[in-house]
């Protein structure tokens, strides 16, 4: 039919704006996210060459190395540290987010800005500040010595605890922001209805507030746990080379040690952990609803 042919023409014309708009971002993501990540999976199954290069001989060696106790210890330690960081960030962040969410809108906006300002300071310099504060002859030890609480300086630095302080203070906003946005959406009338129906504050919290804000909690878990698991700057700055997490091990494989397949295998492990958490998340919430910014 003549009219069908006529109508088919403009379809092609509309391809251009579509391609021009969605094309660049799609191409970028494919070239610089998908292909590199697929390639790293391939590398993880290759052998290490004699000069620290990649020999394209398939092997499971890197994955066996991961299971080696020395490396496996590091992985467990990283998981534990990331877990504790996440737990503490949520325990500290939830009440904090709740307090902000219950303030009037303009006050809440100011409090959120106040939360973000420290993060405009270079993150390494903020970490370094903890070191300055707690170093052997630093202000904290000086104070303790002066007041006579201790007789000789405590070595706070280069310990797991200080690394933890660094992790928590660096990650806290990533817990507070998603928590705040879900709690803020929680309608007061729901809590009043619960009270009206005879629930006390505690029951209302457990039965209403917590379940409704759960997607926010899980967003917080993802946004704190996964980065903490891969971070190496905090351990580098505050661990002084004594505290090593997965991130440090990976970085070292691409630096001084030069074992790319092992680094790749550890990266694949991080990807798997991430995918697992995201998979669980998507069971009960949409990824688009995650408050990432």
């Amino acid at each position: 039919m003549n009219s069908t042919g006529q109508a088919a023409m403009p379809k092609k014309k509309n391809l251009l704006p579509k391609l021009a708009m969605a094309g660049p971002v799609s191409l970028w993501m494919i070239l610089f996210v998908t292909i590199p990540l697929l390639y790293i999976i391939v590398i993880s199954f290759m052998s290490r060459g004699v000069f620290g290069d990649v020999a394209y001989k398939p092997t499971l060696e890197s994955y066996q190395t991961i299971l080696d106790p020395t490396y496996f210890q590091v992985i467990l330690k990283s998981l534990k540290a990331a877990g504790i960081t996440t737990l503490l960030c949520i325990l500290i962040g939830y009440p904090f987010a709740y307090i902000i969410a219950r303030k009037p809108k303009d006050v809440a906006a100011k409090m959120i800005t106040l939360l973000m300002i420290p993060f405009w300071t270079n993150s390494l310099m903020r970490l370094n500040a903890w070191l300055l504060l707690f170093q052997t002859s630093g202000p904290v030890n000086n104070f303790l010595m002066h007041t006579g609480l201790v007789s000789k300086p405590i070595s706070f630095i280069y310990t797991d605890s200080l690394v933890m302080v660094g992790l928590i203070t660096n990650m806290l906003p990533f817990a507070v922001l998603p928590l705040y946005s879900t709690i803020e959406k929680l309608e007061r009338s729901l809590l009043e209805a619960s009270a009206d129906l005879g629930a006390n504050a505690r029951t209302t919290f457990m039965k209403i507030t917590l379940p409704i804000t759960f997607p926010g909690i899980f967003s917080a878990i993802i946004l704190v746990f996964i980065p903490s698991l891969g971070i190496y700057t905090v351990t580098d700055m505050l661990g002084g080379g004594k505290v090593l997490y997965i991130g440090n091990i990976i970085k070292n494989q691409f630096g001084s040690i030069r074992n790319w397949p092992l680094g790749a295998a550890l990266s694949v492990l991080l990807i798997l952990v991430t995918m697992l958490l995201i998979f669980i998340y998507t069971r009960f919430a949409k990824i688009e609803d995650m408050e990432v910014v």
Partner: peptide, 29 residues
């Protein structure tokens, strides 16, 4: 368009996956 959902999901990878993984992957490529 076809594959739009895939692109949308891909956008979340750099946001969520630890940065070191992406850095290493880009270095290798």
């Amino acid at each position: 368009f076809k594959g739009k959902k895939a692109i949308n999901n891909m956008l979340y990878i750099p946001i969520i996956v630890p940065e070191i993984v992406l850095a290493v992957a880009l270095l290798i490529i």
